[in-house]
Amino acid sequence: MKNKLFLIVLVTLYSQLSFAQEPVVFLINAHHIKAKKDAYQKKDAAAKNQVELILSKADALLNTKPKSVMDKSSTPPSGSKHDYMSQAPYFWPDPSKADGIPYIRKDGERNPDIRKITDAAYLHDMTSKCKYLSLAYYFTGRESYAAKASELLNIWFLAAETKMNPNLNYAQAIPGLNDGRGIGIIESRSLAELADWIGLLSGSKALSKDKTEEIKNWYKQYLSWMLNSKNGKDEHHSKNNHGTIYDAQITSFALFTDQKALAETTLTESLKRIAVQITPEGQQPLELARTKAYSYSTMNLNEGWFNLALLGEHAGVDIWNYQTADGKSIRKALDWLIPYGLAEKEKTFKQIIPYNSSELYRLLIIAGTEYKNAAYLKQAASIQKDQETRLTDLLYN
């Protein structure tokens, strides 16, 4: 009886210790998120308010029905709905042709017909739901959140009837021209942050180590496809934000699947892009040439360079402070963008949609921490709060 009681106590203590450890995450700071959790458990008012936003979102998701690539009405050229497919967003029927084919490009103008193929929306939806469910589990330890997240992950990656094949052969197809393009790989970028949400579920009953390894194996297969397929190689050679975000995905997936050497190599090679993408003054000409110049400049920093820099901290590559001989750097790019993003300077490049200054918030918060510069934090404080900025505060501030 004493031995049994001792075993129960030992298991309980081990569980508590495991739950108290810092999570294995790459884009969010493990020490920071652990400190937020400690503050929440001590009923800190600010932490409580931030976490309650997460819990309200997660509670609304507990009865949600999982979606999969099998739910689309269209079938890819392969004949298998397990293959992801989507249509190029900025291509429209040619009005000079009776059948509209081949489609023609209208940069920045999204064709609403792309919504008829649901894979892109459902992939984004799945990663977004896992974000709130995983964070809710991490802060509370309630298994109901982990169970729902695990269900969503199982349907998308593992279940034989519904899983997505690990490729994007048919992403961003252009009717009349091709069945898919390397450019479509940008649509899987949310899988980088999903790796962190999976990390937050570690220790839950719902997502076992074996199931986590199965998901990692899917990521390994997808990573191999990105590195070796024609579409993957095409995207690798992209000079603008597509190339940056491709590198960020490769690095994230490599770290998630315990391939640190590949992550380090990718990060080191990515530094060459700075000389191509950024001027000594901090402009990003390849993004400024677009019809949403400031939005694309922000995205290239946010989902490209800042993510690469955060990932670099796990592979010993310092992107934060890297600078070319003629002064090009990601910090210069941020400093150039800020006055336009905060409407302190008049925008002189094309921006066909309104620019929301909250797009800058994550960049400013992270920059304030990484560069130990209070001016960035002060600029962030000038931006009106919304749900996304409050989530950023929970994860980074």
Rank of each mutant, 00 (worst) to 15 (best):
E303P: 04
K129F: 00
E281S: 08
R290C: 06
T348E: 07
A149C: 07
S297T: 01
E346A: 15
S78T: 11
G108V: 09
D125V: 09
Y14L: 15
S382K: 14
S80T: 09
S18Q: 13
S238W: 03
I353H: 05
L194F: 07
P93G: 11
S78Y: 03
S144Q: 15
L17S: 14
A60C: 04
L61Y: 08
Q384P: 10
I155E: 13
Q277V: 09
K2L: 09
L223F: 03
A60H: 04
F349H: 14
W225T: 05
N356V: 13
L10C: 11
A159I: 06
G176A: 13
F253E: 00
I319R: 02
P339A: 07
V276W: 11
D83Q: 12
F26K: 13
I54S: 08
K48L: 06
F6S: 14
C130H: 00
V25D: 13
Q323Y: 03
A254G: 00
T392P: 03
T324D: 04
D44H: 02
H236Q: 12
K292N: 13
K260D: 13
K37A: 14
P89R: 06
K209A: 13
F157S: 12
Y340T: 10
I183L: 12
L301V: 08
L286E: 06
L194G: 02
R110T: 09
Q172M: 04
A147T: 11
W218Y: 03
E359K: 06
T12I: 15
